[in-house]
Design a binder for these strands. Structure first.
Lengths: 193, 193, 193, 193
DNA sequence: CATGAATGAGCATTCATTCAT
DNA sequence: GATGAATGAATGCTCATTCAT
C-alpha cells in the first residue's frame, strides 16, 4: 500500500512534471528550455528529474504525450454532441465545428506539436516514440470526425487541410475566413456524396 | 567592374554556402548542425562564414530562402503546362499533378521547411524574416495553382491539405492513395463549381 | 544548519575564487586573464565558476572587492595607533605614515585597482558596481585619516595626491622622496591651521 | 620631391589615423575598439593600417602620443599668461587655473590616458614606449607650473593631487569644490614659503 | 601602396548529466 | 528518494593579422 501509494504518487508526479514541461516548451521553445527551467518550475531539484525521466528526450516525449491528450480532449469536447444521419445537417455541423475550432483553437498548441515532431526527425529513437503517440491520438481524434462523415479518408483530408491552414495563418498567409467556410461546406457535402 | 565581379562572386558564394547549409540541416537537423560543420562542408574557415553572414540565424534564413526557391522551382515545373478552360480537364490535370507531386516530392524538404519555420516561433526577429520569405514564395507557388482554379482560396486550401497530408504520411498516419486521389478529384470539381 | 554550513562554504569558496582571480589579474592583466586561467588556478572546472559567479564581469567585481578589502586592511593597520590632539604631532605622524606607506605599499595593488576601475568606464553596469564598492571602501580608508586631520577634505586631497604620486612613480616620473616628505609635512600643517 | 611629399603625406596620415583612433578609444574603450573600427573611421582599408602601423599596439602608442599632445596644448594655453613674482598673486593665479581646469578639463581625457597607461602594465615593451612618452610630456606640462612655483616637486605634487581628484570625481567620491579651492590656495602658499 | 577576403587561434558561456551526501 | 555542486564537452562568435591581386 505504501508501495501502491508511492507508485501512484510517482505517476502523478511524472504527469505534473510533463505538464509543467509542456508549459515551458510553449513559453520558451523546444530549443530553449532547460532542465534547470523544469526543475525550478516544478519546485524540484534538477537531479530529481532524473529519477522520473531517463533524460531530457524522455521528458520531451512525456510532454508531447500530455499535449496530445490535451488536444484529444479539446476535439472530443467539440465533436461530442454532433452526430447526424442527415447529410446537409452533417455538413452544417462540421462547418460550424470547424469554424469554432479555427477561431478558438489555441493554434500555438498545434504549432508546438509540430515543432516537437519535426525536431525529432533526426533522432530515430525519438521519432519512433513520438510517431507512435502521434498516430494513436490522431486516430482517436479522427474517429470522432468519422462519426460525422462515415468515411475515414474524408475526415483525414479535412483534418490535414485544417492543420495546413493553421500553419499558414500562423506564418502570415492571409486567408478570408468566409471564403474558407464556404469552401469547407462545399467540400463536406461533395465528399459525403 | 572589379566591384561588379566581386559582388557577383560574393553573391554566388553566399548562395553556395546557403545550399551547403541546407544540406547540412537536412542531414543533421536544425538543432544539431554547427558553424564548424558548415565551414568544413564549404571548405572554408569558420571565421570566413562571418564575412558572409552576420550570424548563424542569418545563415539559417539564407538556407530557408534557398529551400523555398527549390520548392518554387519544383512546383513551377510541375504546373507549367497545365492550363485549361474545361473544368473536368482541370480537375484531371490537378489530380494528376497532385499525384505526381505526392509520389515524387521530396517530402523531407517540406518537413525541413516546417522545421525551420516552427523553430523560429520563439525568436520574433527570426520569425519575421522567415515569414516574409515564406509568404512571398508561397504566394508564387499558389499563383500557379490559381491558374488552374481561377480561385485563390481554393488553391490555398488544397495546398494546405497537401501539406497536412505530407506531414501525416511522414509520421506514420496510414492513408490510401487511391481514396485520396478520388477525393481530391471530387474536391477540385466541387470547388470549381 | 546544513543550509547554513552550505552557504558559509559557498561564501568562502567565492572569496577563495575572488582572491585567486585577483592574483591572476595582477599577474596577467585584466585584459589577458581567462576563465580557464581562473579555473585552473582554483583547481575547479570552468563550468563550476559559473555556479559561483554569473559571468566574468561579476568575477571581476568580486576580485575588485577583495582588492579594496586588502587595501583597507593595509591602511587601517598603518593608521590604527595614530591619533593625537597636538597639531605638530599629527603632522609628524601623518608624514611618517605616508613615508611608510609610500615605501612599503605594494603600488601594483593601486595600479590594479585603477586598471579595473578605468576599464569599466565603457560598461555602465560594470562601472556602477565598481563605483559603489570604491566609494564605500575609500570612505572607510579616508575616515581613518580624518581622525588625524579632523577634516574630511584635507584627508581626501592628501590621499588623492598620494594616489597620483604612486602612478607617476610607476610610470617613471622621477621624484625626490626627501623633498616630497618635506612638502607633505608643510601641507599637513598648513591644512590643519 | 615626390618622395618628400609622400613622406609628408605619410606622416600626416599617421597623425590623422592616430587622432581618429584616439576618438574611437574614447568612444568605445581601449578594450573594445577594433582595427575594423579604425579602418572605417579613417575611410581606409583594414590592410592599409598595417602600412602605417606595425600592429595594433603601435597604433595605441600613437594614439596615446596624440592624447599627450592634446593635454600639453590644453595646459600650455591655460598657463601661458600666468607668471608672477609675487607669491600671493601666484597663489591666486594657480588657484584660478586649477579651478578652470577642474571645471573645463575633459576629465575623460585623463581617464583615457590612465586607461591606456595602466593597461600596458603587463606588456613590458608596450609599457616602455608609453612610459617614455608619458614622462616627456608630463615634464613639459609640469615645467609650465614650475614657472609659477619656482619648484619642481611642488608642481609635481599639486599635479598629482589634481589627477587623483579627477579620478575620485569620475568614480563618484563627493567633493566640495569650494573646500578644495580653499585648500589648494593654502597649499600653494605654504609650499611657496 | 591599397585592398578586403581569408584565416584560425582564442574565449565566454551553456547545459545535460552524474554522484557523493 | 532528493539534492545541487561539479563537470567538461560543445559551440557561436571575434578579431588581429596576412597576402594575393
Amino acid at each position: 500500500m505504501a508501495n501502491y501509494m508511492d507508485s501512484v504518487d510517482k505517476i502523478e508526479k511524472k504527469k505534473y512534471i510533463s505538464e509543467k514541461t509542456l508549459e515551458l516548451i510553449s513559453k520558451k521553445g523546444l530549443a530553449n528550455f532547460t532542465m534547470e527551467d523544469v526543475a525550478v518550475a516544478c519546485n524540484v531539484s534538477k537531479g530529481s528529474l532524473y529519477n522520473y525521466f531517463k533524460n531530457k528526450n524522455a521528458l520531451i516525449v512525456a510532454a508531447f504525450t500530455a499535449l496530445m491528450e490535451k488536444m484529444l480532449h479539446f476535439f472530443e469536447e467539440k465533436t461530442s454532441d454532433s452526430t447526424s444521419d442527415c447529410l446537409e445537417k452533417s455538413a452544417d455541423i462540421y462547418t460550424q465545428i470547424y469554424s469554432e475550432i479555427l477561431s478558438s483553437f489555441p493554434s500555438s498548441d498545434l504549432l508546438r506539436l509540430l515543432e516537437i515532431l519535426l525536431n525529432s526527425t533526426h533522432d530515430p529513437s525519438m521519432m519512433q516514440s513520438l510517431t507512435k503517440t502521434f498516430k494513436d491520438y490522431y486516430n482517436k481524434i479522427l474517429s470522432n470526425f468519422e462519426k460525422i462523415f462515415k468515411s475515414k479518408s474524408s475526415a483525414l483530408m479535412l483534418q490535414a487541410m485544417f492543420d495546413g491552414l493553421v500553419i499558414y495563418k500562423a506564418f502570415g498567409v492571409e486567408i478570408s475566413d468566409e471564403e474558407i467556410q464556404e469552401n469547407v461546406r462545399k467540400i463536406v457535402l461533395c465528399l459525403a456524396k
